[in-house]
Every structure is written in structure tokens, then in C-alpha cells.
Computed example of a mutant assay.
Amino acid sequence: MRPSYHPNWIKDDNITSSKGKAITQLWHSNGKCPKGTIPVLRTNEEDVSKHVKKKSLPFAYSIDPEFTSLNENHEYAIVRTQGNFFGTKATFNLWNPKVQENDEFSLTQLWVTAGPDSDVNTIEAGWQVYQGKYKDATTRLFIFWTSDGYKQYKCYNLDCPGFIQTNNEIAIGGSLSPTSQVDGSQYEMTILIWKESKEGLWWMQVDGNVIGYWPASLFSYLSESSSRVDWGGEVINRRLGGHHTTTQMGSGHFPQEGYRKASYIRNIEIVDDSNTLRSPQDLLTITPQESCYDIVKGINDNWGSHVFYGGPGQNPNCP
């Protein structure tokens, strides 16, 4: 199955294609998946025990208390736009931040959102370091969705039925390499998510490769369109011993340090009601703990609408 159409590009030829280098997944060195199959992470007994099936539900749901934007332990450095949207596209540079505890994570992603906070629908995609989930500290491609405000109906990757993968070359939840280095090479990943109105499917594309789709039947508010889109970083802060976590966001450097030190998201665009990619208007900056993690927005001809973001966590100004 393939999408029947893609969003229309605006002056894409005039945007610098990339200052970053291509990324890959480690399993590619061992071959490819045959036609008609997809790559999946190996599943063990512990993974299975985290998931519950209820006869009244059409799918299993993931019990993962760590992943909820309503959790007070979560901290953000993001930009937001509100309106009526049908997708988004952005390029993220890739890092391998240090995470203090196994039950903390550091991620960079986009959020496509609709509905009130108490019952919010979201589609989320990006990269993360989360040893408590993946059993290692590698940087991984991930997706996530919820249809009821992060309560029962929520799911990471392919952990439960929901997202339909159609690509046999990209492993969702798989590691990404190489990662960017401070004052060194920068590596990037471009994610596009858009709604196909004919079938109501939300499609996802990574670096030009169509990965699969979320059926409209998963959602209530997102079955029509998105009312909000966010881009940026998120960490869990357990505040162990009364001190802020040392978990890094992005590169671990503040955005004011700029290119090749700070993390960035560039060529940020939204899909409007004419199925056209455009720069978002009136981006709102949200940085509740700017002495720990911060974000700075900008716009120019080469990078379009973009942000630098991140931080080290605990530091003299963030004790």
C-alpha cells in the first residue's frame, strides 16, 4: 500500500539540501528483509508482560507510565504553532545525549496534536535515548501515539497494533548511526507526517522513505485534522537526591552556542488545508526550565524556520 499523494513542496530547490550527513541503522550491515516482510525489534518475555489485551478493545495498549506529556517529571524546550494543520515536515540533527538513570530518557521529536489535554490525540516521531526501554544507550528512531490523553490508549513503535508499517528497510525502534559530534560532522534525519484525506490515513516518511501510516480509526480528534504542532526536546527529570538530573537534552549544549555545538531542527514546515508545505506562523517558545534546557528560534533563506535547543541539565544555574 502506498499513499495516493504527497504534500506540495514550496521552493524546495531553493533550500540548502543539508549541512548534515546521511544516517543508517546498524542492522543494515547484516542484510535486508525480504519483500513482503518488515524489520521488527526482537521481543522477549519482559516486553510481552508490559502489554495487556482487553476483549473490549480492538488492540492491545501499552502500559508505559514514563511516557505522558502530563507527567510532572517531564521537561521541555519546544516551539508550538496552533491552527488547522494536516501534517508537518522537519529536519533534525542526531545526537547521543547522556542519560543519568535507566528510567529517564532524552528525546527530540515532533508532535501532531488535536483535542483537549484531558483526552488529547497525538502522533509523535523522532529520536530518543531510553535505556529503560531498549536495554542500551544507543540513539533510536521511535514513534508514539495516544488517543486518550496518555491514559490507556497509547503505544510506542510497533509494541501494539496501531501503526501499519509498509517499509522493509527501516526498523522502527532501531538504532541510528552515526550521530553528530560537537565541533565535528553533523548527521540529520528528515521526518514528514501528513494526512491523506481520501482514506483519512496519517502517513510517515523518513529521509524520503515512506514508512507506513496510522489509520484514522485510532483517533477521535485527529481523524479530521491537527490543531497544534510542536517541535523540540523532552527529558524525564527524576530529581534524585533533590538535585536536577544531569540528563542531557540534544547535544547537552545550550542553543546560544550555535551550529556544531547545539542541537537544531531546521526547515520546520506545516501542511496546510491545500496540501502545501509552508513555514509556520507565530511560533510560541515553551521553556519552563530555561536554566536547564533552552530553545531559540530563527528564520533565514537556507534553513527556513528553525530552532537551536538543548542543555546539560544540572549546572550551577540549575542545581
Rank of each mutant, 00 (worst) to 15 (best):
Q25C: 08
K135F: 12
A60S: 15
T287I: 11
P280T: 00
G310P: 11
K19G: 10
K195T: 05
D64L: 02
I211V: 15
Q131I: 09
L141H: 08
S17F: 13
K133Q: 13
K154P: 10
R238W: 12
K154N: 14
T16I: 15
D183V: 04
W27C: 04
A171I: 09
K135L: 09
S251T: 07
E101S: 08
T179Y: 03
S17G: 10
S106L: 02
Y187P: 01
T88D: 05
R80C: 11
R228I: 12
Y150S: 07
G132T: 06
K195S: 06
F105A: 04
V307Q: 02
N8Y: 13
Y76G: 10
A125W: 02
I78S: 01
V307Y: 07
S223A: 13
G115H: 00
N168D: 15
T166I: 14
S56P: 09
I170E: 07
S263A: 13
I265L: 07
K297N: 13
L176R: 02
F86A: 05
S118W: 07
D294E: 11
E196Q: 08
E75Y: 11
P215G: 03
G174M: 00
E234Y: 07
W203M: 04
Q131P: 14
D13A: 13
G311V: 10
L107V: 10
T276A: 01
I170T: 11
I172G: 05
I265V: 10
S274N: 15
L283K: 03
I268E: 03
Y130Q: 07
Q205S: 09
I10H: 11
P255G: 00
G132V: 06
D273F: 08
G242P: 08
N168T: 12
K151H: 15
P97Y: 03
K195L: 09
I63E: 14
G174W: 01
V48Q: 14
G212Q: 03
F92N: 04
P280C: 00
K11D: 15
A171S: 12
T81W: 04
W111A: 02
V52W: 09
D148P: 14
M189T: 03
K32E: 15
P161Q: 00
L107I: 10
Y61S: 12
I299N: 15
V206T: 10
F86L: 13
A114W: 04
L222H: 04
S106Y: 04
G126S: 05
E45N: 14
P39W: 02
N14Q: 13
P34T: 08
Y264S: 05
F308L: 12
E224R: 01
R140F: 05
F254D: 03
T179N: 08
P34L: 03
P65I: 01
W9D: 15
G313C: 06
Y61C: 11
V296G: 09
L57D: 15
Y134F: 14
D183W: 08
R239H: 15
S217H: 06
I78Y: 05
T16W: 11
S263Q: 08
E46Q: 12
P215K: 00
C292V: 10
G313W: 02
S106G: 09
S274R: 09
Q109K: 07
